[in-house]
Design a protein around this nucleic acid. Structure first.
Lengths: 133, 133
DNA sequence: GCGAGTTTGAAGATGATTTGCATATTGTCA
DNA sequence: TGACAATATGCAAATCATCTTCAAACTCGC
C-alpha cells in the first residue's frame, strides 16, 4: 500500500496511518477489530494510541479504504476494501469468517428493492453456519 | 399477548414483563431499541428501570419471544417474533424499516453454505435502500 | 395469607468507542 | 532547506450501550 493511496483520498501521510494500513494488509486474518490492530502494533514495538487507531480506521472507512462490519458481539471489524463486494459466512463453532460472492443473491436483492419502489444502495448479508456432520 | 405466553416459556408473569410485551406489540414501529421501550413506558407513567428493560428483552430473546437485530449504529433493535423469519430493508433517507421474505434468497444461502461444507444455522440480511427517483 | 425463590430499581461497573487538549508532525512556500 | 499554518497524535477523561450487584418488592404454589 503506497503513501499514494493516502494522498489520493486526502489524508496526510503519517506513520500511524501507514502502520495501520500495513497491519490490515499483512494480517493473516482479514477481519480485525480496532483492538486487534492496536495490539499488533504495540506488539511490534510501535508507539501508538488506541484512540488513534479508532480515528484512523474511521477515516479509512470514510475514505473507502476499509469496510467496517458490525457483526454480532459489540465490537466492529475492519477489513481492507478489496474493491469487490462480498458477503460473509461465520462459523458459530470456530468463529472463522469465510467470504463469498453470489451474483444470484445480489440480483434478487435488487429485484426485491425495485419491487418495493427503492433502489439498492448497499447491503449486508451474514450467514451463521455450522460444519456439516 | 396473554400472560400465558410468558408462563409457556418458563417466565413468571410480572408487571414489567407484561408492559414490555405490550409496548413491543402495540408500537407503530416494530423495531425498537431498549431505550425506545424504556421511554415509551416512562412516558406512559410506568415506573420501570432501564436495566429491567434490558434484562427482560434478553430473557424474551432467549425464550424466542423476540428477535434481536444488530443493525449498524451501536444499538440493538428488538422485535416481537412473529414466528416467520424475514429480512430487512432500511431506507437510508427516512430510516424506515421494511420487512420482506425471499424464499429464493434463502434457498441460495443454504446452497452456498452447503457448497462450503457448512449448514446454515441462521442469517441476517439487511438491504440499505433509497427511494427510486 | 406465607415463605422460598425470583424479580426489580437504582447505582455502579463494563467494554467499546469518542472527544478535549497540549504537544508533535506534515506539507507548503519562500 | 527552514519557518509556519494546518493537521495529527497520545493520553486521559468523557460517552454510550449494556450488564451486574444488592437490598427491597414481587410471584406462585401450599
Amino acid at each position: 500500500m503506497q503513501p499514494h493511496n493516502l494522498r489520493k483520498v486526502g489524508l496526510k501521510v503519517t506513520l500511524p496511518r501507514l502502520r495501520v494500513l500495513e497491519v490490515l494488509g499483512e494480517s493473516e486474518e482479514k477481519h480485525l477489530t480496532a483492538d486487534d490492530v492496536y495490539r499488533a502494533l504495540i506488539d511490534s514495538g510501535e508507539d501508538i494510541g488506541l484512540a488513534t487507531v479508532y480515528r484512523v480506521l474511521n477515516q479509512f472507512e470514510a475514505a473507502g479504504l476499509v469496510v467496517k462490519h458490525n457483526f454480532e458481539g459489540g465490537q466492529a471489524f475492519y477489513e481492507l476494501d478489496g474493491g469487490e463486494h462480498h458477503d460473509h459466512m461465520i462459523c458459530v463453532e470456530t468463529g472463522k469468517v469465510i467470504e463469498f460472492v453470489s451474483p444470484d443473491i445480489e440480483r434478487l436483492q435488487s429485484e426485491i428493492a425495485d419491487k418495493h419502489g427503492f433502489q439498492l444502495e448497499d447491503h449486508s448479508l451474514v450467514m451463521y453456519v455450522r460444519p456439516k456432520k
